[in-house]
Design a protein around this nucleic acid. Structure first.
Length: 570
RNA sequence: UGGGGCGUCGUCAAGUGGUAAGACACCAGCCUUUGGAGCUGGCAUUCCCAGGUUCGAAUCCUGGCGCCCCAGCCA
């Protein structure tokens, strides 16, 4: 190496994880001139944030070390895979910010080559056709502590194997009647080496190859060989495949093809959610959520609809790092922190009252309307200002008033003065209640004209600042408040039953009578905002319509008031 | 009592023989026209345990203990 420009970071604070260290070493030693990775999703479901880790890693290291990352659909099981999934997967990867240029591949592109490889193995007496049933194969495999037994078909002649294998391909046999197996070692302590199945007979229409094939390769047989065909130098996968590595290498060695190498990293788990396709599919099928893109789902499409930014997800993935231990769970608070960090910098602030309480400002002229100046984003001067209408009747947040305020409650109460953000100081003079129910229906206040804009006219302090919306100008909208999908930190690993039992019954609360400032009237699907003092919200991309806006709460603001209250209750 | 992997703060995670990074969370305070943001400080005398080697060990050796993964013709 004449230079070390390929090192992604010279910052000593940014230590390389074990994968990047390996790559760096392979480049410096001259083992590889450049690196090639791949992301190999199976098109049988939607991508979730666990996949984002794999995507960021495989595409990320390729970028950092000036190599390439292919997108390869691992479509070896026609009974589970569909094109619609493939399309959604591509959309999600692009949304995250990665690109495979013209390198879109499919394991099914290699079926013919794989078949020839298999014939080669048969000719080397390293593979054979086995007539045992699935159950029998399981019995013959032995157990964790006992070796397996050789299949009675293990010693078939090469000619017979060749003939049978070809007839498997032509579709002569029924599903499950025979399989092609690698001839390795039925006594291996590694179960994966006990003559693993390479091909099974499946008469099903494949979403790309149609009815051309009646045999399909298994993961173990297809994956490593596909890697090798694409000259993948570093095949990154999750740690569940660790035990498969000897098999991965055995196939490559027997075939004498390009020696791709597999490296395993720990899969991502996140507290208060589940990250397994099988479980997510179940939530969808059982209609526990509205679909794969329900904003509560940890799928990329769900997170996107919820209002997450790709930047936040990528930052999160960077920060949790890469290691190779099993069973590590990132705190969802970390994810939410990365989200807020990004949203705080880039979201326009607006005022929206979620639980409206009417306030009449008695000393404010009846028909007067003022256009008050409001800062769009205190974190970003270039975001500019906007005008917000103010009038005699406004809405404030119901929880911003307490008739009998507890200690440290800085908001409105009888006789108390607070600031209306961007507007005036008001003092609560009178509380109007429903005679029957006792519910507070209206507040009467007076304002101090000298405090226009929210400035203190004489230096007097007000502890609280409230957001508000002019009643006459407000835009009514529906707002959905989302919370964690599960009530347990680890719903996937709970001895006390099924994970769906721990679904959070309050994961979605829909508010139908929210009052928003008028600038929001023409917000478009996907637009993100910070509702002042409330949190970050986005316009729902599916259900929102002009004139009937629907917002999703992406994540709340950090809320130290709620924290104070909770700690007092203890 | 088969094989593989892993044990460093509540969580994620650096550290590869020279005297425990960082992030999140948490706590205290400052500041504030968002109880937001920002800022300051605190937060592992100790690295699963026990021995050993060494001037010196989270890092090396020995022996324990604990947790996770593998018995699909799924990936």
């Amino acid at each position: 190496m004449t230079n070390n420009e390929q090192t992604p970071s010279s910052d000593p604070a940014t230590r390389l994880d074990f994968i990047r260290s390996q790559i760096k070493e392979d480049l410096e030693s001259g083992k590889h001139d450049s690196i090639q990775t791949r992301f190999p999703p199976e098109p049988n479901g939607y991508l979730h944030i666990g996949h984002a880790k794999a995507i960021c890693l495989s595409f990320g290291v390729a970028e950092e070390f000036k190599g390439q990352c292919n997108l390869r659909f691992d479509d070896t099981n026609p009974t589970k895979e569909e094109s619609r999934y493939a399309n959604a997967i591509m959309e999600d990867i692009r949304w995250l910010g990665f690109d495979w240029d013209d390198r879109l591949y499919h394991a099914s592109d290699y079926f013919e080559q794989l078949y020839e490889f298999a014939v080669k193995l048969i000719k080397k007496d390293k593979a054979y056709v086995c007539d045992l049933s699935a159950d029998e194969i399981r019995e013959y495999r032995g157990t964790l502590t006992e070796p397996g037994k050789d299949s009675p078909h293990r010693d078939r002649s090469i000619e017979e194997n060749l003939d049978l294998f070809e007839r498997m391909r032509t579709g002569e046999f029924e599903d499950g009647l025979r399989v092609l197996r690698a001839k390795i070692d039925m006594a291996s302590p590694n179960l994966n080496m006990r003559d693993p199945v390479m091909y099974r007979i499946v008469h099903a229409t494949h979403h790309r190859t149609g009815d051309k094939w009646s045999i399909y390769p298994t993961y173990d047989w297809a994956h490593g060989q596909s890697d090798s065909i694409e000259n993948i130098t570093h095949s990154l996968c999750d740690i569940g495949f660790e035990d498969h590595r000897p098999l991965y290498e055995w196939f490559i060695e027997q075939l004498g093809i390009f020696p791709s190498r597999q490296y395993e990293f720990s899969r991502l788990n996140i507290s208060y959610t589940v990250l397994s396709k099988r479980k997510l599919l179940r939530l969808v099928n059982e209609e526990q959520v509205s679909g794969w893109d329900d904003p509560r789902m940890p799928t990329l499409s769900g997170l996107r609809r919820r209002g997450y930014t790709p930047e936040a997800i990528r930052t999160f993935i960077d920060r949790i790092g890469v290691a190779r231990k099993r069973g590590s769970t990132a705190d969802i608070a970390m994810l939410e922190h990365c989200l807020r960090e990004d949203l705080n910098l880039h979201s326009k602030r607006v005022m929206a009252v979620l639980h409206p309480l009417k306030v009449v400002i008695d000393n404010y002229p009846e028909d007067q309307v003022e256009e008050l100046e409001a800062v769009n984003n205190p974190e970003d001067d270039s975001a500019g200002n906007r005008k917000v209408p103010f009038s005699r009747e406004i809405y404030i947040e119901r929880e911003d008033f307490r008739e009998d305020p507890p200690k440290k409650f800085f908001r409105l109460a009888p006789g108390r003065e607070v600031r209306l953000k961007h507007a005036y100081f008001i003092t609560c003079e009178r509380v109007v209640k429903d005679e029957q129910t006792g519910e507070i229906t209206e507040l009467h206040c007076t304002y101090d004209p000298a405090s226009r804009g929210g400035a203190s006219p004489d230096g007097r302090k007000v502890k609280g600042t409230l957001h508000w919306v002019s009643a006459a100008h407000a835009v009514r909208a529906k707002v959905r408040l989302y919370d964690h999908l599960f009530t347990k930190e680890d719903p996937e690993n709970n001895e006390s039953g099924d994970f769906v039992d721990h679904l959070n019954p309050d994961s979605l609360e829909t508010l139908t009578d929210c009052q928003l400032e008028p600038s929001l009237a023409d917000a478009a699907p996907g637009d993100r905002f910070q509702f002042l003092r409330n949190g970050y919200f986005c316009v729902d991309s599916v259900d929102s319509k002009p004139g009937a806006l629907v917002f999703n709460r992406t994540v709340g603001l950090r809320d130290s008031w709620t924290k104070i209250q909770k700690s007092k209750k203890k």
